[in-house]
Amino acid sequence: MAEKLIKVEDLKTQFTTKRGLVKAVDGISFEIKKGERVGLVGESGCGKSVTALSLMKLVPAAHNERVFGKIIFKGQDLVPMKDSQLKEIRGKQMSMIFQDPMTSLDPVFTIGSQIMEALGIHQGLKGKESKKRAIELLALVNIPSSEMVVDYYPHQLSGGMRQRAMIAMALSCEPELLIADEPTTALDVSIQAQIIKLVRELSANKGTALLWITHDLGIVAHLCEKIIVMYAGKLVEMADTMTLFENPMHPYTQALLRLAPKLERGKGRMPPIPGTVPNLIDMPPGCRFADRCPKCMDVCSQEPQWMEVEPGHWVSCFLYSKDGKN
């Protein structure tokens, strides 16, 4: 079994807002092994982006955010770390690509200088040497005429090219973990496929572990070995990809999979999940999916346990709990 790279234990991220305390991430635990590709799936507002930002300790400081729990990365807990310590990890051992490539590059610096910035900080590369490496990196992510593009400003590139440049930047120091926060959402479908293929190849070649955040089960089915399903700030199910698709246990996962469009299903409307995601402020106690769950029981007003029901298959639901109804 491969060595573990990052272990998240009971991670909670909370914001204080004028309307109250938002528990965006409310006690989640999971692990990523070295070189493993993991998908984090959930609908909008379920806390998956905040999870990604929390792992890098990049939660927006404007809302008095607080991160609790443990994020053990290569044996070190990131939660109590200061910025000065984190900068040794960010970009060097763990890096991130973002949802919107149009806004995630600084518009007033060239692509090259933004890649070279990371090279300078982490590898001490300067001048010509650094530029040569930047050109190589751009070529690595299949950007044509990379020796010209290196001097381009972000606005001179298309969305797909910018996202490639972001990937080049994120991978410039060969990190061990790449966090991708819906990096293909803003791109059209053909570009999306190219980007996924690229990340998959680079991850396999370099042994980079991947945490791919998306609402699209189709993407993670192709890309990831393990899938984590998140709902309203909590994890509901985690299993390897095959198991999750063949034997989804949590009613929410089952509903999500029913909703994935399939050609063979033919005509007719898709049955939506009734109800809406609960408000992250004033969350009711108990299972958060209870209101929308077709299999809801009395016991669901209590908090379900996050437990391993089969080897490697975790779920948080009373249907599978020994002290529940079963």
């Binding site: 890098m56 990049l58 060097k92 973002f98």
Partner: peptide, 10 residues
């Protein structure tokens, strides 16, 4: 976003 992206680069 690019501010977050810059911090994420270290």
């Amino acid at each position: 976003d690019y501010i977050k992206a810059l911090l994420s680069k270290g």
